[in-house]
Design a protein around this nucleic acid. Structure first.
Length: 806
RNA sequence: GCCCGGGUGGCGGAAGGGAAGACGCGAUGGCCUCAAAAGCCAUUGUCCUUCGGGGCGUGUGGGUUCGAAUCCCACCCCGGGCACCA
């Protein structure tokens, strides 16, 4: 009688073994070729949910698979442990965010351990660890020193719910906060920014070299939003001292300008407004600037283009005609120059505005004859444009820019949609921005030997809308590092995306006490060879991390040649329950815990792999897990050294069984490379069914276990040890298929008549076209269908298919 | 509105222009058992069938091809991203 499969004992045994043995710990002088596999470090929100399980299952599978291929795999893990939920909890319960966070880390870590995914925990980082804070702050100061961090008063996105400002990236398209869902309002505040725009061009260009999902790259390209065009000055009639600069991507259409528009926030608004228009303009500006983004956006639509005439006119430099200047809220101060020339003939927004305000429309590009639309933005010969007439769009643009540059009126420019990254947050539970404000010296960085600047513990959490740091006298009052006179500390903390923008570098050198990481360590492991995480980070985290990597390389902190942090990216699909995303906030979590206790981690992991293609969203159902759980039991009975549930293969079929095993190795190896894990699992199940029928061989069972080792590490380790005492499956080499053994002895040839399947025959793989045709014509089933007629044409694709066309 | 994905049995899904539905769940039947559970074996797209087999079938309509779930065009539906960026 064979031993039963004691899931809990087996999984515990190997989880302890891997840690004690340090199977998945790597040192920086590891002689094996390097492979850096990283799962996005999690925000600690309590016990793992299915999204974590899915993520870490893929990651662990890659770690173990690569290890079996002889790589020294760096597999670190940590916690993105600063963030709002801990602080919100503190407001409600009074529990300090640190203890709240530490508790949740412990819970999450415990479930990660039970999943059996392996990390080099010696390298663990936590964003809220004073060591980590110290290096985040040093990096901030280096950015400040290099002019990449700066302060600026700016209209910022203020979330009344979160009581903090948000980055543009954190405001949803409908003008609400991505976290709380509150309507975001604009406020003018002094804020810290990081100059990500300095890297706009490189961030865009380097996307081409990344092995990332196309849609993530597309999202980033759209976000950066590069557009080429020209900037030029418009003279204001009767005001030789004032010039209005506009940006356009279509300088070829300038002859069609029938008015100009400036944003309500434009600095020249007062200059441009004539006394008789003052009251109306002021009323319009007040209305627009006090509105929320949402209100401002609800005015979108063809007939509602809102604006007001300033009373001034500017001169079209191409034809010297004066045109009126309007204020309109469809022109944004934050993009280009905050002013445009309006060409209604070739821009739908301008068209709508012109119609609403009774302004003339002149087409300067000939639309196609069958054109029935309004503004025409396509290509065509220029018309009504004097010296540009007849030229196509591209040539006209070039000529128009040349003309502007010759005359010294304007220049070719490139604009980006990307804005600088607003990083200051009026929150407590984040990394303090390490500067002080001195009455005499202004903004003074805290000297590096005084880092980290840590938030005090004895603060009171009150829903005041301001950071509790503001009211802590001991923290707030300090002295100026330059003159020793009284000064005030910065009380804002950094966006938590700052922490996650360099953690992957800290992992390479987590013990370093002198600097965030050494260039040697970063050179050894970077870039990350495989990064795995959710699609929701397609823009924010992945863009910031790319920016940091480039900036740190330029600041001589990271290796100079390190321009990109993540060579390959895989974004897993979301887990849904009944059509909606499974998440804590939606309250529809199915925790993995119950499955650890019943079917075990291996069956749960396998279920995640089997559910569907890794990149696809999946609907969670409890039912399916029975299949992988059964399979584990079936595998145990097949492979346990003492089990006789499956007989040894008869001598007559032994070779064929081994040949099938070689085919399995070839197939599954390929499927691992292609991330086709659901079919890899299917192949293993199919092969198991086959062995139940045909009988097993040593080679077949060993191969099966090796191929499954990265997917179901515990059961395969146990079975391997029982079959090969003293050996560890995860220290074995990945099996290789023998090509001649894997080749099929006979294949099925299908015979079609007019593309319809009529017969199938077993043939040798070496069969030639003539032989195929002969066999096809001899088939009784084919003869019946042909009914005496001769095929007009024969298509033979040896050895699998022949098609007779009649 | 624009840009990406995607629509295949009762369900999750497979099929790299050449056998549609691998594998799994569910369901049905059998073996084992005093019985049940577990296990093992078989059947399972749909309609017709004289049980040999035959017709139909991958969102809809067209097309390319000897051959289309797969490629092309148009449309419908679902999911995601962007959205006054001049």
């Amino acid at each position: 009688m064979a031993a039963a499969y004691d899931i809990q004992a087996v999984e515990k045994k190997w989880q302890d073994y891997w840690v004690e043995r340090g199977t998945y710990q790597v040192d920086n002088d590891d002689p094996r070729p390097k492979f850096y596999c990283l799962c996005m470090y999690p925000y600690p929100s309590g016990p793992a949910h299915q999204g974590h399980v899915r993520n870490y299952t893929f990651g662990d599978l890659i770690v173990r698979h690569r290890t079996m291929h002889g790589y020294g795999v760096l597999t670190p893990m940590g916690f993105d442990s600063f963030g709002l939920p801990a602080e919100n909890a503190a407001l409600k319960t009074g529990v300090h965010p640190r203890s709240f966070t530490d508790e949740r880390i412990a819970e999450l870590k415990a479930s990660i351990l039970r999943l059996g995914s392996q990390y080099d925990w010696r390298r663990e980082v936590r964003s809220h660890d004073p060591e980590y804070i110290k290096w985040s702050q040093r990096i901030f100061l280096r950015l400040l020193d290099a002019g990449l961090a700066y302060r600026k008063k700016a209209p910022v996105n203020w979330c009344p719910g979160c009581q903090t400002v948000l980055a543009n990236e954190q405001v949803l398209a409908d003008g609400t906060c991505e976290r709380s869902g509150d309507v975001v309002v604009k406020r003018d505040l002094e804020q810290w920014f990081l100059k990500i725009t300095a890297y706009a061009e490189e961030l865009l260009a380097d996307l081409d070299q990344l092995d990332w999902p196309e849609r993530v790259k597309t999202m980033q390209r759209n976000w950066i939003g590069r557009s080429e065009g020209a900037e030029f000055d418009l003279e204001v009639q009767g005001r030789p001292d004032v010039k209005l600069r506009v940006f356009t991507t279509r300088p070829d259409t300038t002859f069609g300008m029938t008015y100009a528009v400036v944003a309500p926030e434009h600095p020249l608004v007062d200059e441009l407004t004539t006394p008789d228009r003052r009251d109306e303009v002021r009323a319009f500006v007040d209305r627009v600037t006090l509105e929320t983004e949402v209100e401002r956006q609800t005015t979108e639509g063809s007939l509602e283009k809102r604006g007001v005439f300033t009373g001034s006119s500017v001169v079209n430099p191409f034809n010297s005609q004066p045109v009126p200047v309007y204020l309109a809220d469809y022109v944004l101060m934050g993009y280009g120059t905050g002013a445009i020339m309006a060409v209604p003939g070739e821009d739908q927004r301008d068209w709508d505005f012109a119609k609403t305000h009774g302004l003339p429309i002149i087409r300067t590009v000939e639309p196609p004859d069958d054109w029935e639309g309004e503004a025409y933005t396509g290509d065509g010969p220029a018309i009504n444009s004097e010296w540009l007439n007849g030229l196509d769009k591209e040539r006209a643009i070039r000529k128009a820019i040349e003309w502007l540059e010759e005359k010294g009126i304007g220049v070719r420019t490139v604009n980006y949609r990307l804005r600088d990254w607003l990083v200051s947050r009026q929150r407590f539970w984040g990394c303090p921005i390490p500067v002080v404000y001195c009455p005499d010296h202004g903004v003074v960085p805290v000297p590096e030997d005084q880092l980290p600047v840590l938030a005090p513990d004895d603060v009171e959490f009150r829903p005041t809308g301001e950071s509790p740091l503001r009211f802590h006298e001991g923290f707030l009052n300090t002295t100026c590092p330059i003159d020793g006179e009284p000064a005030l500390r910065e009380t804002d903390t950094m966006d938590t995306f700052v922490d996650s923008s360099w953690y992957f570098l800290r992992f390479t050198d987590a013990w370093n006490e002198d600097m965030p990481f050494s260039k040697e360590a970063a050179s050894k492991w970077m870039p990350v060879d495989q990064y795995i995480g959710g699609i929701e980070h397609a823009i924010l985290h992945l863009m910031y991390a790319r920016f940091f990597t480039k900036a740190l390389a330029d600041l001589d902190i990271a290796p100079k040649e390190l321009r990109e942090p993540f060579s390959r990216l895989f974004t897993q699909g979301m887990i849904r329950l009944g059509g909606t995303k499974m998440s804590k906030s939606k309250g529809n979590l199915i925790t993995p815990q119950q499955f650890f206790d019943t079917v075990g981690a291996d069956a749960l992991r396998l279920h995640h792999l089997f559910m569907g293609p890794p990149a696809d969203d999946v609907d969670w159902t409890d039912a399916g897990i029975k299949g992988t759980s059964n399979f584990m039991q079936r595998l145990w009975r097949l492979a346990d050294a003492e089990s006789d549930a499956v007989p040894i293969a008869a001598e007559s079929v032994e070779v064929e069984v081994n040949r099938a095993a070689h085919r399995l190795i070839a197939r599954v190896s390929d499927e691992y490379e292609r991330w086709s894990y659901n079919t890899a699992v299917a192949a293993c199940m199919e092969f198991t069914n086959y062995l139940y029928k045909q009988g097993k061989t040593e080679f077949a069972v060993d191969s099966l276990l090796l191929l499954m080792a990265p997917m179901t590490p515990h059961i395969t380790a146990e079975l391997w040890e029982r079959r090969h005492p003293g050996e560890h499956i995860h220290e074995q080499r990945w099996p290789e298929a023998d090509v001649t053994m894997a080749a099929e002895e006979t294949v099925v040839m299908i015979i079609q008549v007019n593309g319809k399947l009529r017969d199938r025959l077993n043939v040798k793989p070496s069969i030639d076209e003539a032989e195929m045709e002969k066999l096809a014509l001899e088939s009784p089933k084919v003869r019946e269908v042909l009914d005496g007629s001769n095929p007009k044409r024969v298509i033979a694709k040896p050895p699998r298919l022949v098609n007779l066309v009649v």
